[in-house]
Design a protein around this nucleic acid. Structure first.
Length: 786
DNA sequence: AGCACGCCGACT
DNA sequence: GTCGGCGTGCTC
């Protein structure tokens, strides 16, 4: 018997292994397998994709697998299919994709180390050999071979190392990193004997009857570890370790809460409960009770014996959210996010496989959890950018969730108050069924929003007189103020603080990026170069926008209102989770009057005393310039102003240099549909998603001298790629050197998913994972264009 | 990815 | 002539 195995290697190929007589568990598709690989037969972890009696491959070349360590598959067949899709769509390799989703705790890897021998034989060494020996000495004499190679940077590295081994100056050592799959300990009856204690006698009797019982169960039955160990010492019982096996456990559902739904909630609820499959968008403003609807639907799904997965943005996986889900489903909830330890991830993964838990909450990576009998995925705040993985394989969890629903035939529900433009468009096309919540559940009205034109009003720094008065009034009433400033982006150099002017490409209408090395403003879509502008062409003021962030706002605020208690809530202050939690607790307790914050302050937390929100510079661009800027500004204003007056009526002041921008204007007047309509018109005109599919190629060079090679190769392939894409020129990235590498990018667009996938396949074929020492990555539907 | 092999120029 | 830089190809 043979198994076909996928390994964590950047290759679109599988490998065959012979199944030996003795293995822990029989082979099965989706199971983990430990195999020897390569010239050194180092052990690696793979995933079985097929089990066969015969294979079309010379049998003498086929090695025997080492072990199949589990009696359950780690991936369900549909998860394998989903990973295959993710690989093809996002331009990754099957194995890489599988292992990027699989918790590291499942991996067994053997790697080769070398260490200096003791005592060191006195032999003559060449210069290169000395280099290696020196590097080893600097690292306590032992290093992983791959690390050593990176450090010494010799092209004939392996040759030199082999010489050192034959001279016995260094010795090889194979080390295995074991998995962290929990093993359960069992007490096994060995023989009868005299024991004194009552508990000990009881335990021995119990085990004599049952033969074997898990130590955890015994502990639950009130046999202490001392009692158990006592019998072990006497040799009457034994402890054996066994791997956990899959067993179905019953799951109890708590009583549902009686919540009255509004008519539109009821309508959405009925539609969703009746759906066997399909894509849905639950669209409604803050306070329209979206979460109640999806939790009630989830409850019904669980009642039918199916499982539910709730995906949330990174910053939203808070204790509050958990408590809310627990109010429906009790403590029996699986949590999965990137910050868990490998062990914790393994634990949730196993819970999913066993069906031990029926409700899972997680961030993007949870979309691949091998959940048994999945009956619904909810993607809350579907527009959130944290659903996009920023590393290989660059998948978008919302898209993967939709695909998973298609494959496994269950409904997928996207939820948002401000859907992404893509999702909104698909709902207009009817690809996604729109469920709109028109009324608000809350009796508290939406905050009143005042839009202030910073160019026309009296102001001190960036505080308009309207805002200053409002801050003063609010704090005097004993209520809180949140001042929001978008984090200053590295790229915002061509932005005028006085009038809001942004330098844009005359052809593409994308903000230009300043390249320090060339002292040019460059368009990253067409590559057009412009002379940098140091003075605003509209108002003549100096373009000086360095460092206008939360810190400066805080500083100015302390001068303007010396008596107010001000707190800053941004990346810097909440870096430490404990400090962040403390600050948030203190804010809720009313220990501060004014909160100055970035996005972090606007997500997930409800501050009861907060009744005034000030958006300081609504139209300030954050981060990299791209076609989503407008959408992001819109969403940011809506979310930030929505923080005001959750529990009693509140107000928001939105300050902008260009209050006429659709994103600002429509967000401040609650005219959402108008915003989407205008934004879609602009996107269609300029050829951006959802009207095109996009792809970013990024090449990384060790030395600038390699650029010539890259350009030659790129030009050749560009012709071929032009069959599928419109391809921009190779452009140096604005931060040319990141971690010592020079980055060059090209932005590609195409009209259909089909062309995109074909084009991706061509790129993979033409550019091996490294070619001529040049590394590169494919990013499909990137969140950036540079 | 990680490693072996084989082809060229340049140097003991 | 060999050494080592570099590109190419294989891994069941």
């Amino acid at each position: 018997m043979f198994v076909e195995v996928v390994l964590d290697i950047p290759l679109d190929r599988t490998f065959y292994y012979k199944v030996p007589e003795v293995i822990s568990y029989p082979p099965e598709v989706g199971k983990r397998v430990i195999v020897p690989f390569g010239a050194n037969d180092l052990l690696r972890t793979g995933i079985i994709v097929s089990v066969k009696d015969d294979v079309d491959f010379p049998e003498e070349k086929i090695k025997e697998l080492f072990d199949i360590p589990d009696d359950f598959p780690l991936f369900t067949p549909s998860c394998l299919e989903l990973c295959r899709f993710v690989s093809d769509y996002y331009g990754g390799y099957f194995g890489e994709t599988l292992f990027s989703f699989l918790p590291g705790g499942f991996e067994v890897t053997e790697s080769l180390f070398v260490k200096l021998s003791e005592p060191t034989p006195s032999v003559k060494l060449t210069e290169n050999e000395k280099k290696i020996v020196e590097t080893l000495k600097n690292s306590s004499g032992k290093l992983k071979v791959s690390t050593l190679r990176r450090r010494v940077k010799l092209s004939s590295f392996y040759q030199v190392l082999r010489n050192l081994v034959s001279k016995s100056v260094v010795v090889r050592e194979e080390l295995i990193k074991r998995d962290s799959v929990p093993r359960e300990r069992f007490a096994v009856f060995v023989k009868d004997g005299e024991v004194r204690g009552k508990k000990s006698r009881e335990l021995l009797h119990y085990l004599k009857e049952k033969g074997k019982e898990s130590v955890n169960t015994l502990k639950a039955l009130d046999f202490s570890l001392q009692v158990i160990n006592g019998l072990v010492k006497k040799g009457l019982i034994e402890i054996v370790e066994e791997k956990v096996t899959l067993e179905n456990r019953l799951w109890e559902l708590k009583d549902t809460k009686k919540i009255k739904l509004t008519p539109s909630q009821e309508k959405a609820f009925k539609e969703l409960v009746g759906a066997k499959e399909g894509k849905f968008l639950l669209y409604g403003v803050t306070g329209s009770g979206k979460m109640e609807v999806y939790l009630k639907v989830a409850y019904e799904v669980v009642k039918r014996g199916k499982s539910v997965l709730i995906l949330v943005p990174e910053l939203l996986l808070t204790p509050e959210l958990r408590a809310r889900v627990e109010s429906y489903f009790g403590k029996n909830i699986g949590i999965y996010h990137g910050k868990l330890t490998p062990k914790e991830k393994v634990s949730t993964w196993l819970k999913a496989l066993r069906g031990e838990v029926k409700v899972f909450i997680g961030t993007r990576g949870a979309v691949m959890l091998p959940i048994k009998d999945l009956g619904l995925i909810v993607v809350d705040e579907e527009q959130d950018s944290s659903y996009k993985e920023q590393q290989k394989p660059y998948y978008h969890a919302r898209e993967v969730a939709l695909k998973r629903g298609e494959i496994e035939k269950f409904p997928v529900l996207l939820v948002s108050a401000t859907p992404s433009v893509e999702t909104y468009y698909r709902s207009k096309l009817g690809e996604i069924k729109l469920l709109e919540l028109k009324e608000r559940v809350s009796t508290v009205p939406l905050p009143y929003i005042k839009l202030v034109n910073l160019q026309e009003t009296e102001r001190i720094s960036i505080f308009s007189k309207e805002l200053l008065a409002a801050i003063e009034n609010t704090v005097k009433k004993g209520e809180q103020v949140l001042l929001f400033i978008n984090r200053r982006g590295f790229f915002a150099k061509s932005f005028c603080l006085n009038c809001g002017y942004v330098a844009e490409c005359s052809d593409c209408s994308v903000p230009l990026v300043y390249h320090k090395s060339e002292r040019k403003l460059i368009c990253h879509l067409c590559g057009k170069r412009y002379e940098p502008i140091y003075r605003c062409p509209k108002c003549g003021k100096r373009l000086d926008f360095f460092g206008y962030g939360t810190e400066r706002v805080e500083e100015e605020l302390r001068i303007l209102f010396p008596k107010f208690r001000v707190v800053r809530l941004d990346q810097d202050t909440v870096k430490n989770p404990e400090v962040g939690a403390r600050l948030i607790k203190e804010i809720k307790e009313g220990k501060y009057d004014v909160i100055v914050g970035t996005q972090i302050a606007t997500k997930g937390h409800n501050f009861p005393k907060l009744t005034l929100v000030g958006v300081l510079l609504a139209d300030l661009l954050g981060g990299a310039p791209d076609y989503r800027t407008s959408e992001r500004i819109f969403q940011l204003i809506v979310h930030t102003t929505g923080r005001a007056g959750r529990f009693k009526p509140g107000a928001a002041i939105v300050q902008a240099l260009k209050p006429d921008l659709p994103a600002v204007k429509y967000a401040a007047t609650y005219k959402f549909d108008e915003f989407y309509r205008e934004e879609l018109t602009a996107r269609e005109f300029l050829g951006f998603p959802p009207f095109t599919k996009t792809l970013l190629l990024e090449f990384q060079l060790e030395k600038l001298a390699e650029f010539k090679k890259l350009r030659e190769k790129f030009e050749k392939i560009k012709n071929e790629l032009s069959l599928f894409f419109s391809v921009s020129d190779l452009t140096p990235a604005p931060l040319p050197k990141v971690s010592g590498r020079y980055r060059f990018t090209s932005f590609l667009r195409t009209s259909s998913e089909e062309k995109l996938m074909k084009g991706v396949a061509v790129i993979k074929e033409r550019f091996p994972s490294t070619f001529s020492g040049i590394r590169y990555k494919i990013e499909v539907e990137p969140m950036r264009i540079v």
